[in-house]
Amino acid sequence: MTNKIKIKIDGKEIITDQGKTIVEAAHENGIFIPTLCNFAGALPKGCCRMCTIKINNRFMTSCTTPAAHGMEVENNTNEINDFRKGIIELLFVSGNHFCPSCEKSGNCELQALAYRYQMMVPRFPYDFPMKSVDGSSPYIIKDQNRCILCKRCIKTIKDDLGRHYFAFKERGHKLEVLLDEKMGKEISSALAKKAMENCPVGSIIFKEVGFEVPIGQRKYDHKPIGSEIEN
């Protein structure tokens, strides 16, 4: 039997199982904490900092912090929301996120978070980095302009032997997620589709079919991200 524990998020008491992370506990109890790099079924990494919360006046990532009995968490406060908005803005200026030409627009988690936090313009200057696009795979376009280095594709897209299709290359500001040249040529169309779905932005695009869902019927056209969790 698992031990039940109590934690408080923004003053609201919730009950959860010991060993769950704060993000899991919150989402199960209808409280939305935004995430980007976190992906259900994969180990949390805590690299995007979107799920930042405050415990004991310290900023923590809620996807990597296990819930502990009696914990008091600050989540939906002006300070934290502005911090999260700042992260979204940084992601927008550090890549080339041109929504009108992106196939993922309307289904993109980064864009949806920008809508939710009402980003009208980033407070930082645009970087306009020069990035490459790899279309060598028969089923996938890997566009580095839109990659936010969340590692979700690396963690979730593997072949039967457990080999990864995607991997990090270089470090620091040169860091990129690459699709393995040889494996990319052999990837199945189903797995390529899954890769596009698992990518939070439009960095992995499935070839041959484009703009399948019309404007007005896309995931985030009418309801903000997180509204499916909140009660």
Binding site: F92, N96, F98, P100, V121, Y126, F128, P129, M130, K131
Partner: peptide
């Protein structure tokens, strides 16, 4: 008032940025 993506972030013409 900046109206639209191009005024806000350069938009389509800004695809040349970096080249």
């Amino acid at each position: 008032i900046s109206l639209g993506e191009c005024a806000i972030m350069g938009g389509l013409p800004a695809l040349r940025n970096g080249i």
